[in-house]
Design a protein around this nucleic acid. Structure first.
Lengths: 211, 211
DNA sequence: GTCTATAAACAGATAGAC
DNA sequence: GTCTATCTGTTTATAGAC
């Protein structure tokens, strides 16, 4: 019966997705530590609690798996920027954006590291996204910020460099947490320390621009 | 004759150092792209224009070479912070520090990336330096900045987070140059763009603190 | 679908000629 | 000192039992 077959197919499909999801999550942890070349399929298998060959049942090869991990990470990684628009209050909009970036870095440090590794290695799998959708998105937000300046709502500042500064800081507290912890004995997991980091960013990157 | 032998030994030694230097420079390029595990000795050999086995004549194994590269990078990487002291004018001192960090990132992007990769992978070879000399250095500079605040020379700010913000930005323009170039079509090699980056950092991280 | 066993390719390191 | 050839251990990927 067609209806039953369809239901079974959906269940199977959902099951496959869950299995793939499990592998992708394990792969994210390993790839984010060692990069594409440095990561070992054996380590991913161990992390996922399955056999190495089982991974190859779901993913053709290492690179296909890597790209699947990147795609999962990317969508959520670039989304908060989209929220900013010209009708918002500048202080509130920028503050919300920075908070969202901090929140993501804290929630998904592995995703942050993987993104950083990919970019630092020349973004071989990501360059089209950077040059296409991300570039358009940034250009759009630059004109929003320029609009605020033109309306005398914030002090003059280079919009694109402001965006880069925000990216720099939020990425740094996540990716360099080892150094930060070694030097200061704190990480973003410490609430007071996290508040200090965020407050300093707001003070330097937002409040300093408010007239 | 003793004098002649000594001279020959020194020449040999200098020659060995030059050879080692050549290998280290090639290794820096490869390690900074792929990290310790991801890098291939074959790639380093090719970059150095010698055979793979020749590298092993000068360096016992891959890790010894990696540590030699790290040591070369590290000394110059952490030095500019030392210059800051309480008797300087705050604006000038911070500005000079930021300029020095930008200059280094521009001059040695590979060194910057290698340092970032090592930190992101848990700093297995660098942790003692971070927890020892770097931590002491930072603590010292925090008290310099706190001194400026106490003397009402700059606005109140979290000194350690200010330092982290400066590190974040200078590291970012170097390590994420691929993303920056993809998005903005410029790099720090473009003088006008580099000036825009530096000016924005000074505006946000220094001038905003001046009373 | 998942596993064990194994093939095939690769990479670090060594041996030995020159 | 530098190279080519090779050894040895790993690692990706496949074959085949269950």
């Amino acid at each position: 019966m067609a209806k039953k077959e369809l239901k079974e197919e959906m269940e199977t499909s959902a099951k496959i997705l869950r299995k793939k999801e499990n592998i992708i999550n394990a792969a994210l942890i390993i790839f984010s530590q060692d990069g594409l070349n440095g990561a070992r399929m054996e380590s991913i298998a161990k992390e996922a609690n399955i056999s190495k060959s089982n991974i190859f049942y779901y993913f053709q090869n290492k690179e296909v798996l890597y790209i699947a991990v990147l795609e999962k990470v990317l969508s959520e990684w670039l989304s908060p920027l989209s929220e900013i628009n010209i009708n918002q209050d500048p202080k509130k909009a920028l503050q919300t954006y920075i908070e969202a970036k901090y929140e993501m870095s804290k929630k998904s440090p592995a995703a942050s590291r993987l993104y950083a590794l990919e970019i630092m290695q020349g973004a071989p799998h990501l360059m089209p996204v950077l040059k296409g959708p991300l570039k358009r998105l940034v250009r759009e937000k630059v004109s929003v910020i320029d609009g605020w300046i033109a309306e005398n709502k914030i002090k003059p500042v280079s919009a694109i460099h402001l965006i880069f500064h925000i990216w720099a800081v939020t990425q740094h507290y996540s990716d360099f947490s080892n150094q930060i912890e070694a030097v200061s004995s704190h990480t973003l997991r410490n609430k007071k320390f996290a508040k200090g980091a965020l407050d300093t960013s707001i003070q330097l990157l937002v409040d300093s621009l408010i007239l």
